[in-house]
Amino acid sequence: MPRDAAPALVMLGPDLRARGGIASVLRVWQEAGLTAGRPVLHLATYVDGGALAKLAALALALLRFGGLLLTGRVAAVHAHSASNASFRRKSLFLALARLAGKPYVFHLHGGAFDRYHAGLSSLERAWVRRSIQGARVVLVLSESWADWLRQAIGHPDVRVLPNPVLPAVLPTDVPREAQTLLFLGRLEPEKGVFVLVEALARLAPAHPQLRAVLAGEGDVDGVRKAAVDAGVAGRVELPGWVDGEAKARLLARAGIFVLPSRFEGLPMALLEAQAAGLPVVATRVGGIPQVVREDNGRLAEPDNVASLVVALAPLLDNPAEAARMGARGREQVLAGYGVARVRAVLDAAWARLATK
């Protein structure tokens, strides 16, 4: 930023090239032009890489932020945070913002903050409360998370800001495979990927063409072993992390999107799958029930293989109805989570930063 530049809204979050949910949301914000026409400075507090790279990025961001504060180039702050290390990083910047008298928005992503909060010491909880209560506005992804923040933290201005969804642009040369399940997310127990492998094994005898594409980083070897042990190794594909054209081709190919997580906020991958016209089978956690309903998908209970099988079976048995569900889901998500609605909530939150 030039020395004579106007004070900016400093956006704290991961590097836009990073892998993960918050970075995906910020890339959509950028593509949708949600910050266009405003003096916004993105400050990367996290990068992909090893521990030293992460520590160096944090230290550099803190130095830059301190310099911006000292030279009067910070008008306000918008902090994108999840749990654990993500929150601890942002809390350092927010403490500096409070010392400098700069207003800020605390924007909570992810679906495990209540569990994180429950495991903290009394001193750590006080720090969390101070960090969040110091915000002019708190943004969350769903009404259930708004209720939790109001009760647990006691903030007076908690608003629901859904993740924005853009119309999907899918390749036309990829045929849809009604019996192919698609999972996008980290390969870890918290995302329910091992439950999905077990459900696949139970469904396979009645569905000879059934396959599952499990795309993401994490415990790849563990998932591969689970598939071998369950007798479905030949039905499971593990392409690793996908984005851009590779992700678009998987969304065009799959017949059903599956996300059997233990906890969530309102996952971007799920919204993108709906925008691509896929019916969704997911768990009844976080903000998911507000977008997955009987007319566009099915809900299952977390950590429950039988429940997931019951949710998936009717869609696999009736591909035509599954396709109709996907079409309805696409209409609903673009109407309810389009850029215009998100822009209105975001503009109102930022306007609040300019008031006393």
Rank of each mutant, 00 (worst) to 15 (best):
D48N: 15
D48S: 11
D48A: 13
D48M: 12
D48K: 11
G49F: 14
G49N: 05
G49V: 07
G49Y: 10
G49C: 07
G50W: 03
G50M: 04
G50D: 10
G50H: 08
G50I: 02
G50T: 09
G50F: 10
A51S: 08
A51C: 04
L52E: 15
L52D: 15
L52S: 13
A53Y: 02
A53K: 11
K54I: 02
L55D: 11
L55Q: 09
L55K: 04
A56F: 15
A57M: 02
L58Q: 01
L58Y: 13
L58M: 11
L58G: 01
A59W: 13
A59F: 05
A59E: 11
A59V: 09
L60Y: 04
A61N: 09
A61P: 14
A61F: 10
A61M: 03
A61Q: 08
L62V: 15
L62S: 05
L62Y: 03
L62R: 12
L62G: 01
L62N: 04
L62D: 07
L63R: 14
L63T: 11
R64N: 01
R64I: 08
R64P: 04
F65Q: 12
F65C: 02
F65N: 05
F65R: 03
F65Y: 12
G66S: 06
G66R: 14
G66E: 07
G66V: 00
G67M: 05
G67D: 03
L68C: 00
L68Q: 13
L68W: 06
L69T: 00
L69F: 03
L69K: 11
L69G: 00
L70N: 03
L70K: 05
L70A: 12
L70T: 05
L70M: 08
L70R: 14
T71R: 09
T71G: 08
T71W: 14
G72A: 02
G72Y: 07
G72R: 06
G72M: 06
G72H: 06
G72V: 08
R73W: 13
R73Q: 14
R73Y: 13
V74T: 03
V74R: 08
A75R: 15
A75N: 14
A75G: 05
A75Y: 11
A76K: 15
A76F: 10
V77Y: 01
V77N: 01
V77Q: 02
V77H: 05
V77K: 05
V77S: 01
H78G: 09
H78F: 10
H78E: 13
H78P: 02
A79P: 06
A79G: 06
A79K: 09
A79D: 11
A79R: 05
H80S: 00
H80A: 05
S81P: 01
S81E: 06
S81C: 11
A82C: 08
A82I: 04
